[in-house]
Amino acid sequence: MKTSRSTRRVDDGAPWPVIVVATLTIVFFALPFIGLLGRTPWSDLFDVLGESRVRTALWLSIRTSVTSASASLLFGVPLAWVLARGRFPGRSAVRALCTMSMVLPPVVGGVALFFSFGRQGVFGRFLDDWFSFQFTFSVWGVILAQTFVAMPYLVLTVEAAIRQADARYEDAARSLGGSRWYVFRRITVPAIRPALVAGVVLAWARALGEFGATITFAGNFPGTTQTMSIATYLALDTDAREALVLSVVMIATSFAVLFGLRDRWMGAATGTTR
């Protein structure tokens, strides 16, 4: 009984052209990873991971990506709130501006960071004059570049959640005497918690994978600016074995994160799960 019923449901549910194309699409996404895993020198896996160069890059990536994700949360949530709830002219233009780095070629983002936060940039020159500080070639440059490209993922996720959240709960809280800040902390933030988790994880994953803006803006120095992504790219020219192992580590991490996130992200995106 059970089998026949589930079979019938599949027949009813999906038109065959959809199934065919969907299957091809799955294969399209799976093949590159199969190819990569097939070339991976599994026997060398732990040798390569044990190399201090690799461990340095891995540790730097973890530190910078966690910091960037935290910065995205701290600065991105207020921005998302303003974009979702604020009423001011040019809001769409502001949204486009603040999420553009997501679609720009990362190298362009890196060059743009030069003109703003670089030692001769409109803002960076003051940092250099007053504090002798420059982002480029420092770990802060990596964090800046990662945050620049990663934060839009959080902003868009959280903005959608705030839009979908029922603003009347905030009205109820205010009518009970909650200040706007108190209501934001006690009502708004808990209501969008799944989206916050999803947004932070997406931003973190993007920061972990960031390469173009980082190498363009921050440079490449082991322990300071050489992240996993940069090490992977550069190793491709010199030691393909190392590049493959690093790639496998990144793939495993990304898959684990997205797999663990599947319901939360879908829920936050469609508003079906609370």
Partner: peptide, 21 residues
């Protein structure tokens, strides 16, 4: 005392012309 190992000559040129290095 090198501060960065760029991917290619272009990376060196970009960072010097932008004043970073």
């Amino acid at each position: 005392n090198f501060r960065s190992f760029e991917a290619n000559v272009g990376g060196i040129v970009t960072k010097i012309t932008n004043g970073a290095a």
